[in-house]
């Protein structure tokens, strides 16, 4: 069912529960426009991954609906060409666990998998593999088996395997999990470059520092699996009450000379000191 709309994704009151009644997402509504940089923020098990899976047509809304490129995402739509091929070409999903994503015997096979599924000519597939190996600095790993790679290398190969398809939307599920600071920075720079090239990115994370750098818009999910805020990143990061309420920051007590004060705390958020001894500091 095609519906006229300029948005890439339109999520309307979508709900999803896993078998056994485990709630994944409740009454979620969201619109994603072309070129947006969105971060899905929420504590563990708040529904970020579920929402990404709904957007990638891997799970399907049990209540409400999810529209992608104007078409309602149903099991039939996601499995029937030509929409299924168009959709898979447009949307790339980086899984949290790279081992899940790297199922081919070698790095080269892994990068070639997506383009081959899209029935691209062999020459073009080869060219894309070469480009990806070069852009992500993976030439030396070409013939290596995925299980012999380090965490950072796996993540780069997983990203290369998505980008070789040529998507216009990237869904990134906790992309910094298990990465050292240097690999995190490299990933950040690459995603920034991709966004600059026109890609839309939706990143699920609970790392506020990373989110602030990778996205301009924040969608906050509560521990009750509901979207509680969809606003510019700066505005969301300034709302400490909201961040405390959804368990993205915690209250932290510490001493300053003769007085102790309590304030919301995340390792990436600034806070001010001062005020009367024993009293609450400004901005807390």
């Amino acid at each position: 069912m095609m519906e006229a709309s300029g948005a890439i994704f339109e999520v309307r009151n979508a709900g999803f529960s896993y078998p056994g009644g485990v709630v994944g997402l409740v009454d979620a509504s969201l619109t994603v426009a072309v070129g947006e940089r969105i971060a899905l923020l929420g504590a563990n098990a708040s529904g970020k991954s579920t929402l990404l899976q709904l957007l990638d047509g891997l799970q399907f809304a049990q209540t409400g609906s999810v529209l992608a490129f104007g078409t309602k995402l149903t099991e039939a739509a996601a499995e029937t060409p030509p929409f299924s091929r168009f959709f898979r070409r447009q949307v790339g999903f980086l899984f949290q666990n790279s081992d899940v994503q790297l199922f081919s015997p070698t790095v080269e096979d892994e990068i070639a998998f997506g383009p081959l599924q899209l029935r691209l000519p062999q020459d073009e597939v080869r060219q894309r593999v070469e480009d990806m190996l070069q852009i992500l600095g993976l030439q030396a790993l070409r013939d290596r088996a995925p299980h012999t790679l380090s965490g950072g290398e796996k993540k780069r190969v997983a990203l290369a395997s998505l980008l070789s398809v040529g998507p216009s939307v990237l869904l990134l599920d906790e992309p910094t999990t298990g990465l050292d600071p240097r690999s995190q920075q490299a990933l950040l720079e690459l995603v920034a470059e991709l966004h600059h090239a026109g890609l839309t990115t939706i990143t699920a994370t609970h790392d506020l520092g990373f989110a602030a750098e990778i996205a301009s818009q924040a969608v906050v999910l509560s521990e009750e699996h509901r979207i509680v805020r969809d606003a510019p990143m700066r505005e969301v990061l300034g709302d400490l009450d909201l961040l405390l309420q959804v368990n993205l920051i915690h209250s932290h007590a510490h001493e300053h000379g003769s007085y102790t004060h309590v304030h919301p705390h995340a390792h990436t958020l600034p806070h001010e000191h001062g005020g009367e001894p024993g009293g609450p500091p400004p901005g807390a």
């Binding site: 891997l58 898979r88 070409r89 790339g92 899984f95 070639a112 081959l116 599924q117 593999v129 398809v165």
Partner: peptide, 21 residues
């Protein structure tokens, strides 16, 4: 793992037919 790997394959366009370089 089997379910997740299948999802990852579907996400990259797998339609049930193995294709290789």
């Amino acid at each position: 793992l089997g379910d997740e790997v299948y999802q990852a394959m579907v996400s990259r366009g797998y339609e049930g037919e193995a294709r290789f370089l």
